[in-house]
Design a protein around this nucleic acid. Sequence first.
DNA 1: CCCCCATCTGACAACGTTGTCCAGGCTCTA
DNA 2: TAGAGCCTGGACAACGTTGTCAGATGGGGG
Lengths: 349, 349
Amino acid sequence: MPETHRRAERLAGSRYGNRPTMKDVAARAGVGLKTVSRVVNGEPGVTPETERRVQEAIDALGFRRNDSARVLRKGRTASIGLVLEDLSDPFYGPLSRAVEEVARAHGALLINGSSAEDPEREQELVLALCARRVDGLVVIPAGDDHRYLEPELKAGVATVFVDRPAGHIAADVVVSDNHGGARDGVAHLIAHGHRRIGFIGDMPRIHTAAERLRGYRAAMDGAGIAVEDAWMSLGVTDPERVRRAAEGMLTGPSPVTAIFTGNNRVTVTVIRVLAEQPRPVALVGFDDFELADLLQPGVTVVAQDAAALGRTAAERLFRQLDGTLLMPERIVLPTRLITRGSGELPPTG
Amino acid sequence: MPETHRRAERLAGSRYGNRPTMKDVAARAGVGLKTVSRVVNGEPGVTPETERRVQEAIDALGFRRNDSARVLRKGRTASIGLVLEDLSDPFYGPLSRAVEEVARAHGALLINGSSAEDPEREQELVLALCARRVDGLVVIPAGDDHRYLEPELKAGVATVFVDRPAGHIAADVVVSDNHGGARDGVAHLIAHGHRRIGFIGDMPRIHTAAERLRGYRAAMDGAGIAVEDAWMSLGVTDPERVRRAAEGMLTGPSPVTAIFTGNNRVTVTVIRVLAEQPRPVALVGFDDFELADLLQPGVTVVAQDAAALGRTAAERLFRQLDGTLLMPERIVLPTRLITRGSGELPPTG
DNA sequence: CCCCCATCTGACAACGTTGTCCAGGCTCTA
DNA sequence: TAGAGCCTGGACAACGTTGTCAGATGGGGG
């Protein structure tokens, strides 16, 4: 079947594909194709009378410019991609929103996808976005090897990694001061008299988790405290195992009097465990969360500014796109210790 | 300057636009353009030897198919748009994620944007997405008049409204049972002996807010309780005014013994106010939130299932796209009352 | 030895837009 | 009134891909 016939069939039979084009508008208005283009894009060189006729035809047909074709012609898509772990995690909502606001200020749309913490899915998403010819990418890495991005970088896709560094590739990175934040949080507990302090965090293959663990160790070392293995629980994330880990370090031969939690989700689970304990146990968590101040006691946290991470990354991205050529850089944003009570409890037991 | 010269200049001087095309790959592999296309798309009719040569050229050049051009040719973009109010609101994260999962299952990408509760911005976003020729739209309306979408619907853009109904236009709608949920929540308070019950909610021009208010009135009417004006506060959202509203109805001539809050943000603010009150005041909130069970007392809520809203809407969207022609329908998802303590407090004062 | 068929390959048009360039009509001046 | 210059409008190619169709190549059978 020749192409033209197929087109006719599509026009006749389908709900799709029958959108009017500039050509249709031009025919209806009795003007040339380019004149319609001029009107649509507000270019000069069209008499008011002609413009009126064209506008009339546009409204009558319900014409809307096809940006795909425009993009193809112009080269830039005015859209950027954001790949993160899980949009339903409250940490990423504000980050994504911040990226979107910056994109909007630059007239760009945001396409986003969740990697579900799966490196393969991350790569799949990133490459799909590149095939769409997004102008730039903000990536919260799930994997630790991003060499697959090399051709894209070379081709000029602006790229910024956020929250965790890129693997084996030179690119901009915006991260929180995970090491310093964790160190300060643990030092805070030490300053309140604790020496047996537990750490519950994610798998150390995740960069942020490793950094926070490093911070914990640094603080303990700094205070001359020898860390016992039983105080550390790495790589547990699901609530049930976190619960067991917490209970374990609270009841062992040298039970902890305070716990430092490596992220949001762990913190919440540990709070539940501590609520059931007879004796008060001090707690400092990495990442702030809503209502942390309303609990009894309020939860002391090391807060990172998710919106600032997103904003900084996106601004950096658009500076790349503006042509301000920049050397890849690593930007570290400070964390903030927010004291609310749980981290100031004295040691007991 | 003729087009060809500009192209040359772009190639020479810019970081962008110098991506290899199928033509380049074909030249390098010494084959025809279409053969490259065949290899890239896994079409049959290419000898292994030829395929190898082409693949080699692809890898060497770092070629990646330009989906913009593909889309232009094929008509479908395999992407859908999601317009919501604010991604940093924890209610929308799971919703967005659910939509994304369904899209992914159908091989589509998700483009999303926040309307910031501004009808104009909503329209702007929706039309931008239409210009990108997304195959479908999931919209959480900010405005109440969507006639501007008529040409798009006619052109075959699949559309589903979520959380709030569309205005002046026939389209699929997926909403929670706001009226029934609020009614049940208030009835729950009445069942626990309350008669003077306050309501704090958003502007009634927002459909969900109006429905919840209606549910409140229905429950009160059903119990034969005459609602006093002082018990109702409508259209306040910022924390400071919510605070004043709550304090007002707690101290008036006939002070309330319980409060029903119309959404998440209001609930959280009211919790803070209640924490400062000398006497216990019962509370039921619309929308669940994390840690509601950890507060003292746990917060009784009318929960809606954000993920189910998103999933249902997206599935409906793809059924539209699959060609299963459907009449516009209104799908109402049930809410669930979760009792945790705050809603079961007896009246005092 | 020739012809036919199957298999593989490539030339070409088309998708809807924008950039370039030229034609025609107008006004203004000499 | 004729020529120069400006303004408006339109024809055409190009962006990178895919569908169509025809040509080339090689193998097997008559």
